[in-house]
Amino acid sequence: MPERIFIKSACQISCQSPLAEEWIDSPVALSGNYLRSQDPKFSDFIPPMHSRRMGLLLKRAVVTSEVALRKAGITVPDAIITGTALGCMENTEKFLGKICREGENMLSPTDFMQSTHNTISSLIAIRLHANGYNCTYSHGESSFGSALLDAAVQMRLGKIRNALVGCHDETTEETFRILTHAGYFSEGEAPATELSVSMVLSTDPDGALCELRSVSVENSHSRTADDVYREALAKAGLADFRGDVKILSDEGFSPIFGKNLSLPAAEVYAGAQMVGNGRCSVAVIVGGSCGRSRTVVVLSEKC
């Protein structure tokens, strides 16, 4: 019998007020082409001796993870599954920049070590002494969807009872310039931003924000938005649902969280918070549609 899955907690560090849900009623209006995240005081969460080697992305990932776990009342999760489209760009740029400018000698091992994509999941596990399943997905805008799907599949197979699932991306000034040149960011669209989202999934409904009814990731084909939405509800057993359904998509949420490859994670976080706070009964997230793959998630009230 497949397990039911719940989202116990979810939090974010973004261009909105960090680790809070003020954006629901009073979002900060976004302006300009490029916005960095609003960061909490990291020293409140991580002692300087531990954070000294961490760039912003790692600090954000550690803080959102530990806050989400605390809110869920879990000390050591059964699994840590992370998505990141580009990884720690600050470290990558430093290491690569040095090689290109100064040659292949006297390079810093710290920059290399912190630049590998799985350093996020690894660092979280080291801090928590978590020996369970640990994985990292890096596949553009479906990085988060892949991570969430993995967690859901393992819970349905009965391999794990809970999981810390997150998605983290940073947009340094260099990344912003390069991706603007590449055509990913452009003027007139939502500003380029960065994002850290962590959430805790569990088979235990106690205190949960919502139920995770279904998750799928598909290579984008030409289906209408309506078809996607109807099929998602049917797959979640909600084909006949006539209550309050909110659709969350890149279009609706880039005015709030800006544009970045982790946006689908923000949409699932937002959906969980909105269902959890009684703003709607069902949330259908269709994330990353502008890209090559689409993440479709259905959340509902616990019943």
Partner: peptide, 12 residues
């Protein structure tokens, strides 16, 4: 061809 679902795992 076009797979129905693709993803990349990056765990070193």
């Amino acid at each position: 061809g076009d797979f129905a679902f693709s993803t990349t795992i990056s765990t070193a």
